[in-house]
Amino acid sequence: MRRIALAAGAVLLSAAQAQTPVLPLRVADITGEAGPCGPLPPSAPAGQKAYFDLLAERLQTDVLNCPMADAATAAVALAAGEIDLARLDGAAFAPVAGKTRNVLTVRAAGALNRIPVVVAAAQGAPFRTLPDMAGASLVFGGPLKASLDVPRRALSDYGADEAFFGPQTVARDYDEAAVRLRAGEAQAMVLHAGAWQKLCRGDHPGEDRCQDLRVIWRQRPVADQAWSVRTDISDDRRFRLIGIHVALHNEAPEAFAWAVGRAGGEEFEPTEAQALLHQGPTVGS
């Protein structure tokens, strides 16, 4: 009898360990007024209801609404484990960056991904970092968004706006930009990472066409807001959250419109863990 009871206990314990109940998802709703987490009230907007219903169905758990006064309060609550998902800005995220991470941002309609930008110069160039480049002449790798707008935005995010540099020209494409740099017509060349890769990748085994050049700076534009989770979130939940959100605009447009929180969003885009923060020295810092 005792043996049976012990065996029964072991089975129950083992089952309890194997079948960890799914935790609810507590979503911050920054309303200006704090309140306890709970189910959505019947008066909730249809888009918010659609968003919560979809998350509940796909994560197979309860999704709770957590009214928050502001993003900073939401960030503290996220780090403390009181909520699980919050849209933060850089100022709110910075103090809790050790315990939380960014997972998603929104790509605006007609905008590009947050593509990395490369600033390169000749091996013997006198500058080593972006802040060293005050007054340096630049050549951009083309007039398109990816080759001009995104690089300018990324540089500006790090404090290096147009006024920081010297004369700036725009080449027809990355090949021409490299020719101008090598001819000494500019002190540095600014390309998006894809163009840099194309420029430097040779057509013969092991060939590197950029051995005479040096990367001074390589960064993505800083995100202005990002959906964030705790760093101890399980891979399963993090990737499922990302997988649900990146397809939200296709699968549930009304939910997507509410979730992005502002007009003009085209789709959710995954992010690196600290997309809201500078990843290196900024000009003037």
Partner: peptide
């Protein structure tokens, strides 16, 4: 569906992760 969501999320996150 959780498999589809997880694998879509993991692949979409790859260039950033």
């Amino acid at each position: 569906q959780p498999f589809i969501d997880a694998v879509r999320g993991a692949m979409a996150a790859l260039p950033y992760d």
